[in-house]
Design a binder for these strands. Structure first.
Lengths: 197, 197
DNA sequence: AGAAGGAGTTAACTTAGGTTAATTCCTTCT
DNA sequence: AGAAGGAATTAACCTAAGTTAACTCCTTCT
């Protein structure tokens, strides 16, 4: 797969966000990574100050608490920008790892180089702003769900939002995404099964 | 207060974000609003597709659940951009109201006009991106807190993050910000008082 | 000064979800 | 085929936080 083909993925992504721009203009040095199912693109605590683009596959952002419990922050399906905005922007260690849930292909760019080109190409910068708007809105919805909705409701919303994941990923990961234990999720599923007759 | 003075507030804000730019270039039509303590800049459910800048004062974002319970999503202190990113970008109704906790002064711009100028001024667009990065990171930290930390820990973190608010705003609002009831917060405070001796 | 209303506290009771552990059911490995 | 390890379920018990309600302070209003 050559660079031209890879960069077409960007266009697919930004078209979805309602934006049309020629990503072949991107000349920043690029690395390509193939990550097998189960492996990590980077681990929590690394300095992951790169911007990644997920060309194919599916990943999750996994964060481990002080007590050693795993939480899934995000499921990300290609095509999509992935990585830690916070780690890039503040030059700190990442607070989560990225694990492949399917074999995945990723290109990467140093944040410095990517940012430098964006600063001189208002189209790219606009794309970046649209990306930030999108991920902010998703986080805001998630905050809303945690504060206002029960675990049962969060599970139902998850199933509606990710119908294709609902049956193809381990329930533990779904539980950790909606902020409960696998045991609690199992109880909720049991209850729903009964109430559906 | 004239426009020049007001626009200087923008500079104070973006300086804090590590960015130096002359906001006197902003020529978009501006409205000025004075909101008294307790009043709302806009209500949940409005079409609040404006960008606001809080020049002085303190506000909170308040969201009411289907069951009629109030949640405080954000406390915002001047100088700062305020408003609903989601409502502006997706042209939907706002999911929260903005209430003044002190008498406040706000300028406002239609999103369309503001965006149009940004698209032709890469400096403004970069500021906007920095603003989005910042609010995203805050939301991400909040998500993290809800999933990983106890209510007690969230309260202590709130006190550390907003020492000046801790004693000057009603406890109900603090409780609703950390996602618990006033009764539960009162219990936590009692427990902390005892354990401090 | 007295009344009214809101904010915070405290107590009693309920409930959702955490914890631990046993059991079953799958894969996968040899 | 049998063993081993992980995933989900179920049950029993525990804890944090919600709910309701009574009580105490404060303001603020007349």
């Amino acid at each position: 797969m050559d660079r031209t083909q890879l960069q077409n993925s960007f266009e697919a992504y930004f078209n979805e966000l309602g934006y049309d721009i020629d990503w072949q203009r991107l000349t920043v040095p690029m690395d390509v990574h193939v990550i097998c199912k189960g492996d990590y693109l980077f681990q929590q605590g690394d300095f992951a100050n790169r911007l990644y683009f997920l060309h194919s596959g599916l990943v999750r952002y996994v964060s481990v608490s002080d007590e050693g419990k795993e939480f899934t922050q995000t499921f990300a399906k290609s095509p999509r920008i992935i990585g830690s905005t916070k780690a890039m922007v503040t030059e700190t260690r990442v607070l989560f790892g990225i694990q492949a849930l399917e074999d995945s292909m990723v290109s990467s760019y140093t944040w410095q180089a990517f940012y430098a080109q964006m600063r001189h190409d208002i189209g790219f910068l606009e794309c970046y702003a649209k990306f930030l708007e999108r991920i902010f809105i998703v986080k805001e919805e998630r905050e809303n769900a945690f504060v206002k909705h029960s675990a049962e409701r969060r599970y139902l919303d998850f199933c509606a939002a990710y119908p294709e994941l609902k049956d193809s990923i381990p329930q533990q990961q779904i539980a950790s995404y909606i902020g409960i234990t696998p045991v609690a999720l199992s109880r909720i599923r049991q209850k729903l099964k009964l109430s559906r007759g």
